[in-house]
Computed example of a mutant assay.
Amino acid sequence: METQLLSHGMPVLAGIAAVFVLAGLVKGVIGLGLPTVAMALLGVMMPPAQAAALMVLPSLVTNLWQLAAGPGLSGAVGRLWPLLVGICLGTWGGAGLLDGISAADARHGLGLALAIYAGLGLGAWSFVLSGRWGRVLALPVGMATGVVTLATGVFVVPAVPYLQALGMTKDELVQALGLSFTVSTVALAFGLADSGVLSVPVLGASALALLPALLGMALGQWLRGRVGNRAFRLCFFVGLLALGGHLLLTA
């Protein structure tokens, strides 16, 4: 895979770098979207398998950076650990629940759910989970997120609506998203490694995409620091709407 990537001409390599800069910038601003943006744009340059291989390290490292840059990692872990345990359980144990469901149907359903949620958010509708309900729902929400991750490769639903309903500040929310996505990525990577999909050449190719993704994320975080809470909320829900629309159109 690494040799195949290096065999592309300079215009294609420059295009790949630009894709990861843009995808990292989107993630830096709203806290999510790197895999979706990158996969959508890389799909016009290479087969899906190569595009997916490039995503492994950029996704993992940018998620780690995102959670480490927040206001209090230990507090976030202490608050969200039931959600994280549920994500692992759902990712590792949910394969049997997906029998009979096609990948296209799963992505279509996820895209529709995201679009509806984003539309409600843009319409100023919101809900807040109390401390008690936040604790009660954490484990089942995590397990459902793990199952959805298996079906679609996207870590967003229902974890993102759940986290957004906890009433966090924009920086706390972005950190919580990074923590959730990191655990989801690691859990999925263990499953892929166990099935023999991940290999050293795949990781080598993915490492080449890491630097532009980090550059884009640094730019996105710089922009987020200059965006007010209201503008961030608008960017957040517009980003979710774009993600949902992309899933619907490509399902």
Rank of each mutant, 00 (worst) to 15 (best):
A38C: 10
G72D: 15
L112W: 11
T149E: 02
F181Q: 07
R230D: 14
A151F: 00
L42G: 04
M1A: 13
G96L: 07
G121N: 07
L22E: 01
L223Y: 02
F237R: 10
A52Y: 13
F155L: 11
L247I: 01
G191P: 02
S130C: 07
L211F: 14
A165W: 03
G28A: 09
D99L: 11
L122A: 09
S126W: 01
L188D: 01
A138W: 00
Q4T: 10
H108R: 14
A251C: 13
A95D: 14
S199N: 11
L150A: 06
L60Q: 01
A118V: 08
R79P: 01
A113Y: 04
G146T: 06
C88M: 15
V200R: 14
W92D: 00
L64M: 14
G109I: 00
M10R: 15
C88Q: 13
V85C: 14
G78T: 08
L234G: 02
V160W: 01
C235Q: 15
G70A: 03
I116R: 08
R224F: 08
R226D: 09
A14G: 10
L234F: 08
L139T: 07
G245T: 12
G204Q: 14
L32R: 04
G94P: 06
Y117G: 03
M46L: 05
M168T: 00
L150N: 08
A207F: 09
G228K: 10
L110K: 01
L89K: 04
F20D: 00
V26S: 03
L214N: 04
A144K: 03
A103Q: 14
R224K: 11
V148R: 01
R233A: 15
M55D: 03
V12E: 09
A124E: 15
G75M: 09
Q175G: 00
F232M: 10
V174H: 02
A159E: 06
L80E: 01
L203N: 04
S7R: 06
P47M: 13
F181W: 14
L215W: 11
D105L: 14
G239A: 08
D194T: 09
L64V: 13
A49Y: 06
G142M: 10
S59D: 06
L139A: 10
A52R: 09
V21C: 11
A144E: 01
G70H: 00
G109L: 06
A113G: 10
S74M: 13
G228V: 11
H246R: 07
V174P: 02
W133A: 12
G225Y: 06
T182Q: 06
G178S: 04
G15N: 07
W133M: 13
P71V: 05
G109W: 08
G191R: 09
S199W: 08
A23D: 07
L13V: 06
L120V: 09
L112I: 11
V183G: 04
W65T: 09
L83R: 03
A51L: 00
A49S: 14
F232K: 07
V136D: 09
L112R: 03
V157I: 14
L83E: 03
A118Y: 04
L32G: 04
L110S: 05
G90D: 00
A104V: 12
V85P: 05
W133E: 10
V136I: 15
S102D: 13
G100N: 07
L203C: 05
